[in-house]
């Protein structure tokens, strides 16, 4: 692994996470769409220097605006990268759409359920183990602004691997992929 991409919807804390991982000064604001271009830094992973890229927020892999285009292009360029799919724990279902798209495209994905504190306040509990069983990729919980869970996230990045979308479909007992058509 030589690159880590932080991907997720707008306003789920990718840049906060980036700052923690890369120790850089990316701009973080409380409104979505702050990261239109991307930030690049690096972190140490098991003694190796690894690039970390803070990708603009995107709802899906079908780009609708310039920021999303940047995100999708970046993903295509960095085929072998480990993708950290950051999801707002209080809006998991919405975030899983992108996660499934990333898995469907064959990327090595690890899911970060960020903003766990917000979910807790809203009385939302996420069964991460079950989610991990279903998706077949690592799922970790973090509160990026307080630095909680980051150790686990980093230590499990190596476990990120491509998972078959068909086997996921089988495990949830549904039919068809994430895209209803094209």
């Amino acid at each position: 692994m030589n690159k880590v991409l932080l991907m997720g919807q707008a306003n789920v804390g990718k840049s906060v996470l980036f700052n923690h991982l890369a120790g850089a000064g990316a701009t973080v604001s409380n409104y979505p769409g702050t990261t239109v271009d991307f930030d690049k830094g690096h972190m140490m992973l098991q003694g190796k220097k690894v690039d970390v890229i803070d990708v603009p927020g995107t709802f899906s892999l079908q780009p609708k605006d310039r920021a999303e285009e940047v995100a999708v292009k970046m993903l295509e360029k960095e085929k072998g990268a480990t993708v950290v799919c950051v999801i707002d724990s209080s809006k998991v279902e919405r975030g899983l759409y992108l996660a499934l798209e990333l898995i469907e495209k064959g990327h090595s994905v690890i899911i970060d359920l960020n903003m766990a504190d917000v979910a807790e306040n809203a009385n939302i509990k996420v069964d991460t183990e079950r989610l991990e069983d279903i998706l077949g990729v690592p799922v970790v919980t973090t509160v990026a602004i307080r630095g909680e869970g980051l150790k686990e996230l980093v230590s499990r990045m190596g476990e990120a691997m491509p998972a078959g979308i068909e086997s996921i479909t089988k495990r949830v007992g549904g039919k068809g992929g994430t895209s209803t058509h094209s």
């Binding site: 919807q9 995107t58 709802f59 899906s60 079908q62 609708k64 809006k91 279902e93 919405r94 759409y97 992108l98 798209e101 994430t178 895209s179 209803t180 058509h181 094209s182």
Partner: peptide
């Protein structure tokens, strides 16, 4: 509408 489904599915 069919052509819009994918566009907004990501938003839930």
């Amino acid at each position: 509408r069919g052509d819009l489904k994918d566009r907004i599915a990501g938003m839930g």
